[in-house]
Design a binder for these strands. Structure first.
Length: 156
DNA sequence: GCCAACGTTGGC
DNA sequence: GCCAACGTTGGC
């Protein structure tokens, strides 16, 4: 099983939105590095740290699980869509999505500043300056450490 | 809201 | 194929 971190602006699509939907297509990723991971490396059962970017402060809010591995992002083919890509065709798709479902909110959201201060998280990508990838691989030890910092998953 | 960092585009 | 210009991300 692999571990990941996925960024979303809570104004666009928050963890609570994911909980309300029950499951979602993680669409709109238009970065090749992130695309490659979605297409090639995500597998059903992988765990995801759900990160709220551009919030005050930015923070890890919960855990999600991959329920469908990479497949072509349908929004790239639809001219009405914000994420339409005229160079993409169904035969040669450019962009991929995965489906995720919520596993649980952290008992306490962990702000970025705290991630940066933790010696256990040395080398974690999200705390690096200028790190803009919206999908990032996470070490298992880092994943577990973040969940622990958040007091585990909230129940109920 | 500002702006540094970084990816992409396109002229040459 | 270089690289300046441009657009976007995302912390602050």
């Amino acid at each position: 099983m692999r571990y990941w971190l996925m960024k979303s602006e809570p104004d666009e699509y928050s963890y609570d939105d994911l909980v309300a939907d029950g499951r979602t297509h993680w669409d709109g990723v238009r970065n090749y590095q992130a695309r490659n991971m979605l297409r090639d490396d995500f597998a059903v059962g992988d765990r995801v740290l759900y990160y709220h970017s551009r919030s005050k402060p930015p923070h890890v809010v919960g855990v999600a699980e991959v329920v469908r591995a990479g497949y072509p992002d349908p929004t790239q083919f639809d001219p009405e869509e914000k994420y339409f890509d005229p160079k993409a065709t169904p035969d040669e798709p450019r962009w991929y999505v995965v489906d995720i479902t919520p596993v649980g909110k952290l008992a306490r959201a962990v702000p970025l500043a705290e991630l940066k201060q933790s010696p256990a998280l040395e080398g974690m990508l999200v705390i690096k300056r200028g790190m803009r990838l919206s999908v990032q691989p996470v070490d298992e030890a880092h994943f577990e450490a973040v969940v622990e910092m958040g007091g585990g998953l909230a129940t109920g």
